[in-house]
Every structure is written in C-alpha cells, then in structure tokens.
Write a protein that binds this DNA or RNA. Structure first.
Lengths: 294, 294
DNA sequence: CAATTTATCTGACTAAAGTCAGAGATCATG
DNA sequence: CATGATCTCTGACTTTAGTCAGATAAATTG
C-alpha cells in the first residue's frame, strides 16, 4: 500500500495555514495599526476588561501591555477606569471611537471569512474539516457548562443529535414518538443540561432528566463529529453524575439503541449495569442503571 | 433549524491555528536564531538558490535579505557563489554545517507534527480534514504534471482510485478483472499519465492509454476527496486532451460505471458523446467518445 | 499597623524587522 | 560603446516587540 507520509501531510497543512494566517497577521487587516495594538484592541473588544487578564491572554509583559494601552488611550480608543473593589487594578473599556474601530476589524475579519468560504464549492464540508482541526488543536480547552436546554447552543446540539439518530436508526427517528423530556425536567431543581464548548462552538451535550425524586435519567448524550475520540462523552457523563449528586439523586438510568455501539461500550466500561426495560419508548434496545456513591 | 454562523466557525478555526502556528513562528523551534534567518535558511534548504527568488518567496526587502544572508554566511551556514551566466546574480548554497542545521530544523518540524498527530485518537480523520483545508487554501496552486504511472505519486493515486471503486461499485472492484493497461501504454510515445499536485500532495490523476494509432482511451480519472468540487477533474481531462493532441491522437474513448455519476455528468458536459460498448470489460456501463480538433 | 504581596506603570535598555536612498558592478540594447 | 536597466550590497535610518529593574500605590496578612 502506497501512503503519503503523515508528517508530510501535516507540514503541508502548516505551510498552507501559515501563509493564509501569516498574511493576516503581518499587515493586520490593513488598518495601519501594529499587530500588538490591534490584538489588544481586539481583546478589549471581546469583553476582556481586566488588565492582568488581557496580559495573560495575549502573553504580554506588563510593561509592554501598559505602553500599548497608553497608546490606544492616546488615540481615544479606550479609557482606563479603576476597579470598584481593588484600586490597584485597572479596567479597560472601549470608547465610542474604540467600538467603531473594533467593529471595523470585525467586519474585515468576517469579510475575509466570507470570501474564503464563498469561493469554495462545498463550504459545509470545508467547515466540518475546519471544526475538526480546530477541535483537535484545542482539545484541552473544551469546557463543560450547565445551560438551559432551550438555549441556542443546546438546541443546536439537540437538533444535530436528532438528525444523527434519524440517520443511524434503521427505523429512523422522530422526537415526537420518543418520550421527549419537558425542558423543565432538565433544569434545576429537577434536572440539568450540560453543553460542551470548544472555543465557542458547541461540541457535545448531555441531559439529566429528573422528577424530583432520587432517580433520574440520562438523556441526549451527544458528541459532535468533529470532537469524537477525544474522550468527551466520558467527561460529559462524569459531569452529569456530578450534577446528579448535587441534586441528591442516587440512581441514574438510561436507555439506548443498538445502532449506537460506542455509547453502549462506554456505559459498560464506566460502571453501568444492564437492567430490564423500564419504559415503553419505541426506540431503545438496551437499558442501563448506575447507583451513585457520593 | 439551529445553525452556528459559518463565519464564526471559520474564525474559530483561524484562532486555533493562529495560536498553534504562532507558537511555532515566534520561538522558531528554539534553535536560537531569529525568525527571519531561520526562514531564509529554510528557503535555501528547500533548494532555492537564486537570491531574488528567495527574496520574492519570503517577501523580503533586498537590503534585509542581503544582511540576513551575510549573517548566515558569517555563521558558516551558507556560501555565496556567482551565477554562471549573469555575474550580477548570486547563488546561495548550504555548506556542510548549513545542511546539518537545516536537517535539525526539519527534524524539529517533523517531531512537532508527530507529537500532534500521535496525541490524537484518530489521526487519519484529522489528516483528511487537514488535507481538505490545505487544498481549499491552496486550490489556485494545483499543478498538473506528466509522470510515470509507476511513480510513487501515481501509484498512490491509483491505489486510492481502486479502493474507491471497490467501495462504490455494487459488485466491488478488482483491478485484475478489469482491462489493466500496461504501464507502457500510459507512457510516451504511446500514451501519458498526468498527476495533479497541491503543494506536494497528489490530489488527482488521469491516464491516456494509447496503442500507437490515432485512437486512445482515457483511464483512471480520479480526484482526491480533499480536492473535490474544485474543478480539478475538468482540468485533468483538458490536460489529457492536450497530451493526446501532442501525440497526434484524434479520437478519445472511455468507459465508466453507473456508480460514478459525477464523472458521467462531466463527460456529458464537456463534448463527449455516448457510443456503443467497445470492450468486454465487466465493470463499465457507459461508453463515450470525443473527437479532438487541434 | 508593619511587613509582605500584588497590580500597574515608567524609564532605560536590546533585538529584530523593515525602509529607503544611493553605490558599484554587470547586463541588454539601440 | 554609451545609456539605461538590473542585481546585489551598504549605510543610515525607523518601527515594533520585548526585557528588566525599580517606583508607586493599594491590598493582604500576621
């Protein structure tokens, strides 16, 4: 079998993005501001206001950061305020002119993205590939957070999950035919809903559907294709268990379908035991239970 | 349908690779040489020897390039020679020490790549995604070149092509059962074989199988998944036609299978007409012909 | 409340990158 | 063979980024 050296392929990728990204970095979108100042403005525009936070984020020396801030201040783009509780700290805010300037950078960045995506015949496939690469690079920075199951991120995950079930189940899948948990069952104090994010992109979710008692069900465990294989399902399940414990739930149950072997494998390997059918939902083939020990 | 803004996804990707690539750029692999000098050494190591060529490639001012070269020369890493035909020009070559230093950079780059790929649970999927992104970025730099069908690149394409046919044909595919053209039929003066490359990665091929007469067959048209949708098949076919003309071939034929609708669509739209079966190969369902006009 | 720690800023640097106007040698061309 | 173009180099700059040792003020801690 003739294969191309994986390392050569990786390095080809690096060359390609270095050129594409490098072109971005040096001139920094051609607004006549050096890269350092532009990065700082961008950090403030993103809502970072604490000077030390900004320094950490950009990896700047305190002297350099201070001088760059002073520069932006002289240009009237930011103002420095005192921190309400700690007078040593400074809070940076954009002025009206700063907001305009930041918006101009955003517009240029977006245009660049649109131009690139628009000129490609299959932007969906391209974006999926970009998601996968970005998730691989940032796989140590995936964060889990409880959110409302009706938030945009949660709905995005759930729709992707339903679409995937419809694709994978022999008999197809319609949420309405399944026991669709009320959103309120997956919100504290009855339950919880957890979404995983990788730098702003939702890449997985899990729901804890409670009834007020000591038994709850784990529902809607999903990991985005671009984040599979990173151990995220395991993390999500652990987070669901933690949430359950904090809700004084002692027993978890779940059901699943034979078309989801990865999930079944995960349950078998993380302390779940198979039990008898406990509902009359038409889709599941397997039923599991796990007793939690605080 | 809840979707995540494509532009946001693109920008997430940019952030991820900027960090990854940026980390590379600033310290430049920690060999104690500033980025500019390291880039120059790298360009020379890649075989660029003309000073003006190097300047263009790296986008350097002539003064800066000159000084950086002088620096490398003082360190004994390169020597400057006169151009044989134009005494104004300079030729840069690595010394023995320069070759060692370049090799050290290569090794570090490769290690970085290996570490990244090795730490990912599914490097194949990751590499495919990286190929796709790199091909999208470099899609204007895909080059076509005639090569021997037994070269590594050609064999890589052919094996990928056979594997894909085996996947897509209902009845599977075995080269041996098909009319496997002799390699010599796809080499001048009888025929030709063309491989498309995108920065070193073979991303497509096409063969022209001649018999010495005025009729030849087009075989093995393939485009890598990472380069589909970029119009590459059309370019490859045009190149095959050019090669045919240069071999004084006036009529081209080809056969194809119903499982390859993209190909059939392409032939129908580029001047090919369907004709009767002209061989007893077990796989094809459709037969086409095209008369060439010089 | 004194000692220590923390957060930011200033001054005085260095290194790297880049710009620009010539100088000098060489080539191409009428 | 004179003239203008081309290629590389040097000198004299500027800008950007980054480092580091204090200075200053405020918070924390024993």
């Amino acid at each position: 079998m003739t294969t191309i050296d994986p390392v050569a392929r990786f390095r080809r990728f690096s060359r390609a993005v270095t050129m594409e990204v490098g072109a971005l970095d040096t001139s920094f979108l051609g607004r006549g501001r050096p890269l350092g100042a532009a990065r700082l403005l961008n950090a403030v525009g993103q809502g970072r206001s604490d000077v030390s936070d900004i320094r950490d984020y950009l990896g700047l020396d305190s002297g350099l950061a201070s001088r760059l801030l002073r520069g932006l201040e002289e240009d009237g783009l930011v103002v420095t305020l005192r921190h309400s509780r700690d007078a040593r700290r400074r809070i940076i805010e954009l002025t009206e002119a700063g907001r305009r300037e930041f918006a101009a950078y955003e517009r240029l960045s977006n245009q660049r993205a649109e131009r690139f995506l628009g000129s490609h015949p299959n932007p969906d496939a391209l974006l999926e590939a970009m998601d996968l690469v970005a998730s691989a690079i940032g796989r140590d920075n995936i964060s889990l957070a409880e959110t409302n199951p009706e938030s945009t991120d949660a709905r995005y995950c759930l729709e992707a999950y339903y679409a995937e079930l419809a694709r994978r189940f022999e008999e197809g899948f319609e949420v309405a035919r399944s026991r669709d948990p009320e959103a309120s069952d997956m919100v504290r104090p009855r339950g919880a809903f957890i979404v995983a994010e990788s730098d702003g992109l939702p890449v997985g979710c899990v729901g804890l559907k409670g009834s007020g008692g000591q038994i709850a069900e784990v529902k809607r465990l999903w990991v985005a294709p671009c984040a599979r294989g990173l151990g995220l399902a395991r993390h999500l399940m652990a987070a669901a268990e933690d949430a359950a414990l904090s809700l004084s739930i002692t027993t978890l149950r779940l059901d699943t379908n034979k078309a989801l072997p990865e999930a079944i494998h995960l349950y078998r390997n993380t302390g779940w035991t198979e039990i008898d059918r406990f509902n009359d939902d038409p889709y599941p083939d397997f039923f599991f239970e796990k007793r939690l020990t605080p």
